[in-house]
Design a protein around this nucleic acid. Structure first.
Length: 222
DNA sequence: AGGTGATCATTA
DNA sequence: TAATGATCACCT
């Protein structure tokens, strides 16, 4: 176990130490085994980087580095710097949203300060050849923060009104809503538009690749 | 069951 | 081929 960083500076220094390193080299340093692929261990890279940097929030709905309020996100890119996937942020609270506002929700807290760890890989190439690019700390600008809030509130307004059928992945400029469950048969409790109990597929908030591509372009390129 | 970490796989 | 919908592993 690696102790959690107690300052932003300490986290920065740790992040800098993995810049440019391949997953294979990092696994050697930590005497960790690398899976053959991610088909059955989709979160392996993210959890591996977490353990390397000392994330301590476990599966609490709080930022990974609890003492300094920083969330860690690995960001898959290809070797030309293209973002290849969306970024999961948090669950959409469908069944227990009473009293939850943008300002007190876990989604906002996670988005307030993120350490992005871009990891480049070629599809169909061994995971050990993935290479960590330069990690960077990011905080939303005022405009970005406003847009994030708007995206979140549009979704939660539908949830509060019980208009769950209107939730879809086309909503949202930065954040979108997509299924987040073990499979499509999983159900979570909900309330429909007439106030009756119902059930629906659990959803999560994801950052659109177009947005994270903008971050990569800003931070990783000149 | 519902969070965390996400990527896979099919559709449009 | 980008985007949507589906899925996998681990943890509490």
């Amino acid at each position: 176990m690696i102790l959690p960083p107690t300052t932003i500076k300490e986290l920065k220094e740790r992040a800098q130490q993995i810049a440019g390193v391949t997953i294979g080299e990092l696994a050697n340093r930590h005497q960790a085994n690398i899976p053959d692929d991610l088909k059955r261990q989709k979160g392996w890279q993210g959890q591996f980087i977490e353990s390397c940097l000392g994330a301590d929030a476990g599966n609490l709905s709080e930022p990974d580095f609890s003492k300094i309020g920083v969330e860690l996100k690995t960001l898959p890119i290809d070797f030309s710097g293209r973002v290849v996937e969306s970024t999961y942020i948090s669950v959409v609270n469908i069944s227990n949203h009473q009293g939850v506002t943008w300002d007190n929700c876990a989604t906002k807290h996670k988005l307030e300060h993120i350490l992005w760890v871009p990891i480049a890989r070629n599809k169909n190439e061994a995971l050990e050849n993935s290479r960590i690019a330069t990690p960077f700390l990011w905080q939303p600008s005022e405009m970005e923060a406003n847009q994030l809030k708007q995206d979140w509130e549009e979704v939660m307004d539908l949830v509060v009104l019980g208009h769950l059928g209107q939730l879809n992945a086309r909503m949202g400029e930065i954040l979108q809503v997509r299924p987040k469950a073990a499979n499509s048969r999983v159900l979570t409790d909900a309330t429909d538009s007439e106030g009756n109990h119902s059930q629906t597929l659990p959803r999560g908030f994801y950052m659109r690749p177009q947005f994270t591509q903008g971050l990569i372009d800003r931070y990783l390129k000149r």
